[in-house]
């Protein structure tokens, strides 16, 4: 009797598990399987990735862009999350609102808007030239700068909220206490505040890095050919070339890189810190 009573909450998890199975695990599994089966069984898709330098180069690009975007996003998010965690309730409400506003518009619309803003004769370049800061338009788009500007702004909330969540649990008297004990603000931050905010920082970094690896709208709209990312490549392979096998192999490699990096992070700081 008691076992049945105890097991019923688990039954409530079943619908979600079913959705995940049908809409996520099965199709991803099938796509990954095609890497080994299409056009014919074997490892020829992986050999292709290995033989054509462009594929490896794009994989490398992808990891590199994600690796640059992550610290930039963390640095920008840190003070915002700090102000939200330790500011007065008004500041907190205002900042939460501002951080969430971008979600009200679709990623596509925001990216096109960024194109307009950053283009050669766009408002930003015009302004900078009019006030005499620059003589010729800055190349802000169709390059790494464009991709980073676009990616960082969409990823900020994913860092700000986990950071805020771990910062608001930090007792605000710890920093003053460290100061009275002879720690300069910088040392107090490095020894006391930063270690205590590490769980949020790690969660945010993981979310940003992994999301970034799979981006394709932003590099497609704001990047140049040199900023082509794996996501675009997979999209091209399926949408234009119909080669599910190569797409599957690319997805497989992307998944393997993600898993390897997560494993490394787990080794370095412990997954507990990330999950907490």
């Amino acid at each position: 009797m008691s076992t049945r009573r105890e097991s019923w909450p688990w039954l409530l998890l079943l619908p979600a598990a079913l959705v995940m199975l049908v809409a996520f695990a099965l199709p991803v599994g099938m796509l990954l399987a095609r890497a080994f089966t299409q056009p014919e069984p074997g490892l020829q898709n992986f050999l292709l990735l290995w033989e054509r330098p462009v594929y490896l180069q794009i994989l490398g690009n992808t990891v590199m862009i994600a690796a640059v975007a992550t610290p930039v996003t963390l640095l920008l998010a840190y003070p915002v999350a700090h102000a939200m965690a330790h500011g007065n309730p008004r500041t907190r409400r205002l900042l939460t609102f501002l951080v969430l506003v971008p979600f009200w518009t679709s990623l596509l619309v925001r990216s096109f808007a960024t194109v307009i803003l950053l283009q050669r004769r766009g408002p930003l370049n015009t302004l900078l030239m009019n006030i005499g800061l620059i003589d010729a338009p800055l190349p802000l788009i169709y390059n790494l700068t464009g991709v980073l500007l676009g990616a960082v702004q969409t990823l900020l909330p994913f860092v700000i909220f986990p950071l805020y969540n771990s910062m608001r649990r930090i007792d605000p008297t710890l920093m003053p206490a460290a100061l009275t004990m002879g720690a300069s603000p910088a040392r107090a931050f490095l020894r006391v505040y930063l270690p205590l905010s590490l769980p949020g920082l790690m969660t945010g970094a993981t979310l940003v890095f992994i999301s970034m690896l799979g981006y394709f709208v932003i590099p497609a709209l704001l990047g140049g050919p040199r900023e082509t990312m794996v996501g675009q490549l997979i999209q091209d392979q399926i949408g234009q070339l119909g080669s599910w096998g190569v797409a599957g192999a690319l997805s497989f490699v992307l998944l393997a890189i993600t898993a390897a990096l997560l494993g490394l992070l787990h080794r370095l700081v412990g997954l507990k810190a990330v999950a907490r």
């Binding site: 007792d171 008297t173 710890l174 003053p176 206490a177 460290a178 100061l179 009275t180 004990m181 002879g182 720690a183 300069s184 603000p185 107090a188 006391v192």
Partner: peptide
């Protein structure tokens, strides 16, 4: 504060 020769005890301990 860090250049004044003081020690301080807070209400909620403020232990790290």
């Amino acid at each position: 504060p860090y250049k004044r020769d003081i020690g301080m005890v807070f209400q909620h301990y403020a232990l790290f």
